[in-house]
Simulated assay, not measured.
Amino acid sequence: MGITKTERFTAEQNELAILAKAIGHPARIAIIEYLLKIDSCICGDIVNELPLAQPTVSQHLKELKNAGLIKGNIEGTSICYCINEEGFNKLKGFFQNINAYLIKKECC
């Protein structure tokens, strides 16, 4: 596998790329939408909402958590997941910058 050259980009650019990659799968979008709808849940509830096997859902949850888009707390034998506002605030700031540019810009 080739060198990614991530060291040639800013920390913010690398962080935004990780966040964007984490939401770049429809199953992860579905998980985020479900968490927004119910505010928190355990992994089993998410598995019941998606047409995926439990190990697959767990892998998607892991990716979202590693990117900082969700948080998980262990409660007994279950993990309760919720949205991590900090991660989404970073995405929000990025898209607000794009939106501000688009509002001002008259492009071809």
Results as ranks from 00 to 15, higher is better:
residue 80 C to W: 05
residue 49 E to N: 08
residue 78 S to N: 15
residue 35 L to Y: 00
residue 71 K to T: 02
residue 52 L to M: 13
residue 10 T to N: 02
residue 48 N to K: 14
residue 26 P to M: 03
residue 27 A to K: 01
residue 52 L to E: 01
residue 83 I to K: 00
residue 19 L to C: 07
residue 80 C to K: 08
residue 24 G to P: 06
residue 14 N to D: 14
residue 59 Q to E: 10
residue 26 P to E: 14
residue 88 F to V: 06
residue 48 N to L: 10
residue 88 F to Y: 12
residue 71 K to P: 01
residue 66 N to W: 00
residue 71 K to Y: 03
residue 67 A to H: 06
residue 97 N to T: 08
residue 56 T to C: 06
residue 80 C to V: 13
residue 77 T to H: 12
residue 36 L to K: 11
residue 88 F to N: 06
residue 74 I to N: 10
residue 78 S to A: 14
residue 71 K to D: 11
residue 50 L to C: 06
residue 54 Q to N: 07
residue 86 E to A: 15
residue 34 Y to S: 09
residue 100 A to G: 13
residue 16 L to E: 02
residue 13 Q to T: 07
residue 7 E to P: 00
residue 7 E to L: 13
residue 89 N to T: 09
residue 91 L to Q: 07
residue 72 G to H: 04
residue 64 L to W: 05
residue 19 L to Y: 07
residue 37 K to E: 11
residue 67 A to W: 04
residue 12 E to H: 08
residue 19 L to G: 03
residue 27 A to T: 03
residue 12 E to K: 07
residue 84 N to R: 03
residue 55 P to S: 02
residue 99 N to K: 14
residue 24 G to V: 01
residue 42 I to H: 05
residue 54 Q to G: 04
residue 66 N to L: 14
residue 48 N to A: 11
residue 94 F to I: 00
residue 51 P to A: 13
residue 38 I to Q: 13
residue 53 A to F: 12
residue 67 A to L: 06
residue 98 I to M: 14
residue 36 L to F: 11
residue 60 H to A: 00
residue 19 L to N: 06
residue 94 F to E: 08
residue 46 I to F: 05
residue 94 F to Y: 13
residue 33 E to G: 05
residue 13 Q to K: 08
residue 85 E to V: 04
residue 25 H to Q: 07
residue 53 A to G: 04
residue 32 I to Y: 03
residue 58 S to N: 14
residue 7 E to S: 12
residue 91 L to W: 05
residue 47 V to M: 08
residue 88 F to L: 11
residue 60 H to I: 00
residue 76 G to D: 07
residue 51 P to R: 06
residue 82 C to I: 01
residue 71 K to Q: 09
residue 37 K to A: 11
residue 95 F to I: 07
